[in-house]
Design a protein around this nucleic acid. Structure first.
Length: 447
DNA sequence: TTTTGAGTTGTTCGA
DNA sequence: GTCGAACAACTCAAA
């Protein structure tokens, strides 16, 4: 069983298929093509998740480093496996890699068996009546619901792990990188299931009303666990099906956004890095020394707009940002600083512990007006209003900006209006939102 | 086949 | 303070 982005044993269709075929040797390949660009937070998290997976598979996990097209057939040969099981991967690189691995397995006379995917509905399966893919979310959502999905996968026979000679995991796994966020979520399947259980019972019912509130703990924070497949969306959907209400519908709808973006990437792999709407690349962007300094201020959470800065400090501190705040900081980069969305997307992918190529890049394109079902260009987020609306008491801002902890209440969103002026140590605004909003509208209209 | 109307996570303005 | 319109353009499904 070749584990990739499905680091779990429960509700794992590929693992169930492997178990049904006989003794299973669990394998993970640390692939430099994925490891190198992952950034410190995801590297550290993956190492922790692999240790947890090793525990789940009774200490039998084999970890190898290198090109999967070499390492997977090599292990298959060494233990005389007749099948290699894996789930589907729908990313641009994953497709290419899996094709190469399948080819080398086939040469070696080993069956490559593909079962399941990281999604409830595999990308490419939901199509319009004319056979073309959806480009708007709501119709996709309706068709996705109508399409439906399988029940969680169950083992038909108990798992039996093959005894494979392997060096101790500590000798194979790298030391954790430096430059880590101060806190990372607990890794592994058990942690993911526990998170979901608590969320489902205690917070889900508030999801509809409070999910946009970064000051409250009202989102499930399962993104990182979904990213690494420590829990399958089908597991969540099966639980949701037992419940009724607007909160349940809203949560299911958010899961569908993840599937929608994966579907878009599947149909148009180049959108992982490039504009879905190429004409948007003609937009007039700021470049040069000032733009570089402003990008750095944004990255470090020193723009002078508290809601934006709190988000960027949360990214540094946790490798995670609340979804509402991701929208606000992304809008700020694109519309207030007039920078290319790809700069923001790249930085996010470097720092996020839950960084998912499809969700990250399609969402950035949505904000920039270049994606599917994109925000209209005149939809410019006002960082002060967003703060006042979604962090009314300023608790979220104070949590991440120690310089502003002395300010009471929602006034913290406009530190320049405080009686004593901007508190010591907190920067003045690097741009005037009112001016830059007009400038953004001008540039988008002129495109 | 063509038309029509709803949809898309926001802000600002003026009545 | 509240509310609807305006801010484009385009997809999609129903009529």
């Amino acid at each position: 069983m070749w584990f990739r982005r499905d680091l779990r044993c429960q509700d794992n269709a590929a693992l169930a298929a492997a178990a049904a075929a006989g003794e299973v040797a669990p394998l993970f390949v640390l692939d430099p093509r994925l490891w190198d660009p992952a950034g410190p937070a995801r590297r550290a998290y993956l190492l922790r998740s692999l240790r947890e997976l090793d525990r789940s598979v009774g200490g039998h996990l084999v970890v190898r480093r290198g090109d999967p097209a070499v390492e997977v057939p090599a292990l298959a040969h060494a233990i005389a496996a007749d099948q290699v099981h894996r789930a589907a991967d729908y990313g641009p690189y994953g497709r290419e890699r899996d094709g190469a691995v399948d080819a080398s397995l086939s040469e070696a006379g080993v069956d490559a068996v593909r079962t399941g995917s990281p999604y409830a509905v595999a990308p490419g399966r939901v199509l319009k009546s004319d056979g073309s893919p959806y480009a708007v979310f709501t119709p996709f959502y309706r068709a996705w619901l109508a399409h439906g999905w399988r029940k969680p996968a169950e083992l038909s026979v108990p798992l039996r792990w093959a005894e494979v000679e392997r060096p101790p995991l500590n000798e194979v796994l790298d030391a954790e990188p430096g430059d880590l966020p101060a806190t990372l979520p607990d890794a592994g399947e058990a942690a993911a299931l526990a998170m979901w259980r608590v969320y489902r019972e205690e917070h889900l019912s508030d999801y509809d009303s409070d999910r946009n509130r970064p000051d409250l703990a009202t989102t499930s924070r399962l993104s990182v666990h979904l990213k690494y497949g420590e829990i399958h969306p089908r597991t969540l959907l099966a639980d949701l099906a037992q419940r009724r209400g607007k909160a349940v519908d809203a949560y299911r709808r958010q899961l569908c956004w993840r599937e929608f973006f994966a579907d878009v990437l599947w149909h148009q792999p180049h959108t992982a890095r490039e504009y879905l709407k190429p004409e948007m690349a003609r937009l007039e962007y700021d470049t040069g020394g000032v733009a570089d300094r402003q990008l750095r201020a944004w990255q470090e959470g020193r723009t002078g707009y508290p809601f934006v800065d709190a988000g960027m400090r949360q990214l540094l501190g946790e490798g995670y940002v609340h979804n509402r705040v991701r929208l606000a900081v992304a809008s700020f980069l694109c519309k207030d600083l007039h920078l290319d969305w790809r700069l923001g997307a790249r930085y996010f992918m470097n720092r996020l512990v839950d960084g998912d190529l499809a969700s990250n890049n399609q969402s950035w394109q949505w904000v920039a007006g270049s994606g599917v079902d994109a925000a209209p260009y005149y939809r410019v987020f006002n960082p002060v209003l967003q703060g006042q609306r979604f962090d009314p008491d300023g608790d979220y801002v104070r949590r991440w900006l120690p310089e502003l902890r002395g300010v009471v209440g929602g006034a913290v969103h406009e530190p320049w209006d405080l009686p004593g002026g901007v508190p010591e140590g907190y920067p003045e605004r690097i741009v005037d939102h009112k001016v830059e909003r007009e400038e953004a509208l001008r540039r988008y209209a002129a495109r």
